[in-house]
Design a protein around this nucleic acid. Structure first.
Length: 272
DNA sequence: CCCAAGACCTGGCGGC
DNA sequence: TGCCGCCAGGTCTTGG
């Protein structure tokens, strides 16, 4: 589920039901996620306190509670949904925050690459967040930054884009999509792309992510009750998942290969 | 410092 | 049906 648009969609979906609510119980059924879930700390810090804000940094969701933040990451397969108290329990429902309004904020994650962490004080001070690059939709991210950071880099541009020090929130799907849109070969050395092309690429990344967030917004209702799956399924993907099929722009067969262990799809005719 | 590979997990799929 | 290998939206850690 989780590329940045899905995480932002989740944030927007849960916020109205969670913000201002008191945490009346914390249930951890499986503490072995990416890092051990700090059950003691969570109980001690959260029980009886209000959830004051639901924020996001990169693909982390941040719940402001009492003197700190609960930091959630959905990994590859995680989801966070509001369910009723009598909702059936699934095999991978690892963590519940029971709220005063009777709903449960439930973290489900089959692969357990997600994480639940606690940070006292400011979330940005957590070691995992402290050194992240800028948000892709902020002014701090632009073509100039891409150009500057990429000088002398021989790394493939796709991997450069997916590095959280460059910019956060560009995952495998949107890296593929943005590079197609920009007409850039994903294998091209990051240091061998012009300033002008990076300026166009940065704008495209912003546009692609924004559009995906807008589309995610159409399924917000699915976060309460029901079992809807918000996400990019509505998105018109140009290349991701289409290896071997025809390019929508020039009809040439799309190439698929691995770059840094990740599926990479591109049009050898449109992308240079 | 730079970069690629390995690590962490489960489930779904196609092939035999 | 059963088993096997491969694949999957992330990202931290390790090692050359």
């Amino acid at each position: 589920m989780p590329e940045l648009p899905e995480v932002e969609t989740t944030r927007r979906g849960i916020e109205p039901h969670v913000k201002g609510q008191r945490v009346v119980a914390v249930v951890v059924r499986q503490p072995r996620l990416r890092w051990p879930v700090p059950v003691e700390l969570m109980t001690q810090q959260m029980l009886g306190r209000l959830i004051e804000a639901v924020e996001r940094r990169a693909k982390y969701l941040l719940l402001k509670i009492g003197d700190g933040y609960l930091i959630l990451h959905l990994g590859m397969s995680g989801s966070l949904r509001l369910v009723a108290q009598d909702a059936p329990l699934g095999k991978h429902d690892h963590v519940d925050l029971c709220l005063q309004n009777g709903y449960i904020l439930r973290l489900t994650d089959p692969r357990r690459f997600g994480s639940v962490l606690w940070q006292q004080g400011c979330a940005a001070e957590h070691a995992l967040l402290a050194r992240l690059g800028p948000e892709p939709l902020s002014d701090a991210f632009d073509g100039e930054r891409l150009f500057r950071l990429s000088r002398n880099k021989r790394q493939a541009v796709k991997q450069f884009l997916m590095d959280g020090h460059t910019v956060v929130g560009v995952g495998n799907i949107y890296a593929n999509e943005a590079l197609f849109e920009a007409g850039i070969d994903p294998r091209r050395a990051a240091g061998r792309i012009s300033r002008a092309r990076y300026q166009r690429l940065a704008q495209i990344i912003k546009a692609v992510l924004l559009k995906a967030i807008e589309q995610g917004g159409t399924t917000l209702k699915d976060f309460v009750g029901g079992d809807g799956k918000p996400g990019y399924f509505q998105q018109q993907l140009q290349v991701y998942g289409r290896g071997g099929e025809h390019c929508y722009r020039c009809a040439a067969p799309l190439q698929q290969l691995k770059l840094g262990q990740r599926a990479t799809v591109y049009c050898p005719r449109c992308q240079r």
